[in-house]
Amino acid sequence: MTQRTQQTSWVVEARNLHKTFAWTPVLSDISFRIVSAEVVGIFGPNGAGKTTLLRLLAALLTPTSGRLTLFGSASSELAVRRKIGFLGHESYLYPDLTPEENLTFYGRAYQIPDLKGRIAQQLEYVGLQDWRTMPVRYFSRGMEQRLSLARALLHAPDLFLLDEPDTGLDPRAVSILHATLAEAKEQAKTVILTSHDFERTRELCTRALILHRGRIAWQSEATLPSPQEFVELYTACTR
């Protein structure tokens, strides 16, 4: 019985995931489990398959084989997507629409109740309430990223996926992001992020994975190793 309840409380359960692109394997034999309130960092050099893994978890890609279960149901189920927030390299914002309109569109797609209030709250959170009627095309990169953050968090996801949050964000976006992650930790939400910079990301994570050539080269135990240990591990794994 305890086994059973534990099974359903896994936020992510990946079993032997494989993904090919152009008929060649990008990810092979990926298996891991993540429970709620964890902050998991996926590390690895460029081309290790980090982004592909994250896009699989976001249900943007379907695995070639293997089983991926999110919140106890198959990743292909539409309802699961309501619980996932994804922040990628691209902002997914329509340049000719204003922040308000962009968020209204996504909010309707997610069928968020009391959308107007939620949008106002989110815009204030990322500090764009004064810009809500200007088309996104005129935004600076930092502003667009902040709005993209608001888009990804609009539906209050239980699982938050971040692709390389430490590259390309401006300082203000980074401080908002850190506040978000701290808040997520408090609310027992799950965060998975990819990075190739362990030092900057380490304090955020409760657990770490190293991905190399499409395989999990190493998974951390309950406690994270020290930075020096990790660097040694990382170089050993990715040689």
Binding site: A79, R81, Y92, A109
Partner: peptide, 18 residues
């Protein structure tokens, strides 16, 4: 094409829409 700029189509696919 208007979905291609900023890869909005991916954003669309993230949503729980059939």
């Amino acid at each position: 094409i208007l979905e291609q700029e900023r890869n909005c189509f991916a954003g669309l696919l993230l949503c729980p829409i059939d």
